[in-house]
Design a protein around this nucleic acid. Sequence first.
DNA 1: GTTAGGG
DNA 2: CCCTAAC
Length: 650
Amino acid sequence: MMVRKRLVYRSRGRRIPTMPRVPNSARGKRSTRRNKDENDMCAFDLLATVAGNLLADQDNSSNVPNTNAAKAKKRKSFKEEHFDEILPLKDVAMEKDVGSGSVSAFPRQANNCLAENSSTRNEAESILESLTMKSDMLAKIPECGSHGIHHPGPSSSVEPEQVQKAEPKVIRRQADGHAVAYDIFDSVDVNGKPPALVSSDSSSCVPLSSHDKEHQTSSLYQGEVQYAADRDDDENSSGCTHPSTIENKGCKPQYLGNHRIRKLLASKVRKAARNKICGGIPSKKIYGGLSNKGSKLNLCGKKISTTRQKVQRTIFKKKKLAHHTTSFAKEMLTEASRTSFATGGQNKSCESENYHVKLRIKSFNIPELFIKVPENATIGSLKRTVMDVVNSIMEGGLRVGVLLQGKDIQDDNKTLRQAGICHDKKLNNIDFTLQCERERESPSGVIIPEQMDFLTADMVEPLARMKCEEPFPEADVGDDNQHSKAPYRSRSLSDLYSVQCPVEMASQDTSASSQAIIPVSPAPSDIGALAIVPLCKSKRSEIGQRRIRRPFTVGEVEALVGAVEQLGTGRWRAVKTLAFDNIEHRTYVDLKDKWKTLVHTASISPQQRRGQPVPQELLDRVLAAQAYWSQHLQDKPRGKARLLPEICFP
DNA sequence: GTTAGGG
DNA sequence: CCCTAAC
């Protein structure tokens, strides 16, 4: 029966040359999706807000990551093996001097900062004693601690800095530097081995429950969760609030149903998430529900994750430049500390005009950045590539939104008082959101004055000051942690950012990264230029994150054609094994799909073709192979005609 | 888990 | 690339 079925397909296959319909429809679909993605932007703004709120709910679910043990092991061994090779690269890359600072100088800077913090601590505390960032979760990591950035404990908070006059620049720089640079280089992995591709496995944003250190480490180690907010403050803030939480390992795989069910659920969840997000439903609820609501939803998330991993097999294996979730959410908290702004009060309606406010960044994640790094790439090219990507990310700019009791206050001209925001009463209900500037009407792409005033001083600045760097994941595990001790400052990147846009943190944020550099494994005949591949263009939350689109290179096409010539169509698993075995991000389904499109491409006129041109010679082989196997398989349903192809396709 | 196909 | 159906 199975054979019969296949025969039927084969017969259809014969018409392949005339199956323009498939591609066309596909195109239409793509187009549609693109639009959809644009719409998803609406979710973008919501994420930030939501994230923070979820932290509190989500933590405790730290559980055992349900990752494939073998894979984890593999990754582990790999990292350990090449740690020494990787580390240097990181340093080199970080030394790129942009602006005044060099990353390599970070250690010293960190210490200095620490000292500064100490000296100004009292003063600062009086102003923002409770200001904290989720990102300090980084500090939780042992290595961070070694740099003196470590937070005192559960209730640790970001070192208060002078907040009075925060400057956007500083903020920017520090913020991104911290976030971006770190991320980018943190996982740079360069080894002598052929660059294998690294899948972003973006879906794997995992929240960490900071409390569970082991878990955390584990996650980091696996590279699945490189960064997560940690609940430094005991206050409950915790974990990763990012929507991606759904896929988070933190959710214990309570049970493992059959994959089919998982896929189904994953699919459903994704759809639901997308729809909801697009619909503008408060992400808070959406995510909150998913993450907290109980085991049910969590399970779903878990399933997604699992499914992803299995189906895509996208676990970065060899080169991962950086993987970071991108959510940046901050929540301003309010216990307005009673420090005055010294602006000279006027009315007293709200009775607290000049107060400094305590703000807390509950979550801070960074976007994924992947880069294709051919072995023959130079450090310079690597730098340029990273720079380009970062710049491209930044170009969107960022905008801060203010929510009062969940309601977005759009009138920028209103005074806080007019908006009903009083230090005494309403501050507790204020939230900030980070929105991608592009796609939004906000003119300058710069933060709005009022907001800036508020944020700058109290919230952003501290953030900018964060010195803690995430340690090399491997470090935690490795015996020799010496290397891991080195912090990776990202001053250079931050500087870049600052140039691009004033308050960029957001760009990397929730927008889920507009782009990413993706390391692509060296396809059989890959041409080795650095290539940047957009990552999750949609900026949608990572919930239903679609895999990044990675166009086949000519080399890959060639390998595919060669494999199909030998194995025939219909044996995609074998094709995968034969020609793409070491390329994690190309699944046999991908190969099958690619073949489908190749056949179509070959059957249309060159003028109608799009994308990177495929040599006519290859297309000819595609048609020949397709025709051959279509016929051949009909005659001999399965197997047995292995050598024929060679005859036909030398 | 694979394969074929439609979207 | 995603999602499903069918095996």
